[in-house]
Simulated assay, not measured.
Amino acid sequence: MRHTVTVGPDYELWVEERGDADAPPLLLIMGANYSGMAWPESFVERLTSRYRVIRYDHRDTGRSSRAFDVAPYTIADLAEDAVAVLDALDVDSAHVVGMSLGGVLVQLLLLDHPERLRSATVFATSALGGAAPESGELPGPDPRILSLWQRMGEQRDPADELAWRVEHWRMLNGDVLPFDPEEFRDLEQRLAEHSGTHVADTAHARAEVGGLDRAAELSAVTTPTLVIEAPADPVNPPPHAEHLEAVIAGSHRITVPGMGHALSSAVLEPLAEAILRHTAAVDRDS
Rank of each mutant, 00 (worst) to 15 (best):
N236L: 11
R66T: 12
A163D: 15
D20G: 01
S265H: 15
D57F: 01
P139D: 12
L268A: 09
W169G: 12
L26W: 00
H168Y: 15
D285Y: 01
G103P: 08
E217D: 13
L148E: 14
E193P: 09
A192V: 14
N173Q: 11
T125C: 05
F184R: 09
S35Y: 01
Q189L: 14
E41N: 13
H240M: 05
R52T: 07
E183A: 10
H95V: 03
V106C: 05
P181I: 08
T255H: 07
L138I: 06
A88E: 10
T74R: 14
E134H: 14
H3T: 09
G62V: 00
M1F: 10
S219G: 15
R66G: 11
E208W: 13
D92E: 15
A131L: 15
P24C: 01
G36H: 01
P25G: 04
A232L: 00
S100M: 07
D92C: 09
R63C: 04
R206Q: 13
D201Y: 01
I248G: 01
I254E: 14
D69R: 14
T61G: 00
A131V: 14
E245M: 10
V221T: 09
L47T: 06
D213N: 12
P114H: 06
A32V: 02
I75A: 02
T74K: 10
L148N: 09
T4N: 15
L26Y: 04
V44E: 09
A241W: 11
V221S: 04
Q155H: 14
D175E: 15
V176Q: 12
V7N: 03
L271G: 04
E16I: 01
L28F: 00
E134W: 12
G174N: 08
A203V: 06
E45H: 11
V221W: 02
D142H: 10
T121H: 01
F68H: 03
W39M: 06
S219R: 13
A84V: 06
L148K: 09
G19P: 07
G140M: 04
L109E: 03
L212T: 02
T61K: 06
E193R: 13
G250A: 05
S119W: 00
E45D: 15
S49E: 15
T74E: 12
D283S: 00
D60H: 02
V97I: 11
D213H: 08
L105C: 02
V166R: 07
Y11N: 08
V70Q: 15
L86M: 08
H58C: 05
H240R: 03
H58K: 06
A38K: 07
P234Q: 08
Y73C: 05
P24L: 00
Q189I: 13
W14E: 13
I54M: 07
